[in-house]
Design a protein around this nucleic acid. Structure first.
Length: 218
DNA sequence: AATGATGCCAACCGCCTCCAT
DNA sequence: GATGGAGGCGGTTGGCATCAT
């Protein structure tokens, strides 16, 4: 069955969002909360389809989003999780609450893929990260990893909102939901965590070296 | 300074899953 | 159980910015 796209109605606006549209969307969500995307265009008068509203909110307007400037730590986490989970950007993003799946996907495609390609020949073997032995193997590895291995200690502390949404975020003051940053003990996350704690945590090469020795040890 | 090539990222498209009926 | 609608996700693209020549 071929279903027509949700946005093929005449009069539905496409393309970049304007600040005015952002403000309307943020105000509405501030009042009613996210969800029920279908009702947003009708209730706000926005000439956008529901999907577009949801995407704009989750990828850009949602409070607590950090944009640009991925740190070596974040790079390491993304590389590790991508090796484990594949292109499950939403699952990977769940480990980095300040980053969106779209952002991670873009960063992977534009930066990390190239970086790894460059580094791989020098490593003399394919770059694969084995699953940590402390993690149980499941059919649905993505679900189980997320379920069993929370990594709030790997989350970065809130920093600047380096985005043009900064002004809009200010609108949300008072409703700002900061990502949880509890520092409780958590299950080990293999050499990724070790790498993060060690001196060489500033370079992806360090992580890859650890991963190589882990591979050869198995 | 002009122009073409390349990089980057916001947003769209289409498929899939879930849930209500 | 079948069907259809809504939301979620990953792949892809269009357009702007920057770099190289």
């Amino acid at each position: 069955m071929v279903r027509p796209p949700c946005c093929d109605k005449v009069g539905v606006k496409k393309g970049p969002w304007t600040p005015e549209e952002d403000i309307i969307l943020v105000s509405y969500i501030q009042e009613h909360g996210p969800g029920n995307w279908r009702s947003i265009p009708t209730n706000t008068g926005l000439m956008r389809c529901s999907k577009s509203c949801r995407l704009r909110w989750t990828n850009y307007l949602r409070p607590g989003i950090k944009r640009g400037n991925f740190t070596p730590r974040e790079e390491g986490i993304i590389i590790h999780l991508q090796a484990m989970l594949g292109n499950k950007w939403a699952a990977i993003a769940s480990y980095l609450p300040q980053r969106t799946d779209n952002d991670i996907k873009n960063y992977w495609n534009t930066h990390l893929k190239k970086k790894l390609k460059k580094l791989q020949p020098t490593m003399g073997q394919n770059y694969t990260i084995p699953l940590d032995s402390t993690l149980p193997m499941h059919d649905n590895i993505q679900e189980k990893v997320v379920e069993n291995t929370p990594l709030p200690n790997l989350c970065l502390h809130p920093s600047t909102y380096a985005s043009s949404a900064e002004n809009i975020s200010k609108l949300l003051e008072g409703d700002e939901r900061k990502p949880s940053m509890d520092s409780e003990e958590h299950p080990p996350f293999s050499y990724l965590e070790k790498w993060l704690l060690e001196e060489n945590s500033g370079s992806i090469e360090g992580l890859m070296e650890m991963s190589s020795s882990a591979n050869s040890a198995t």
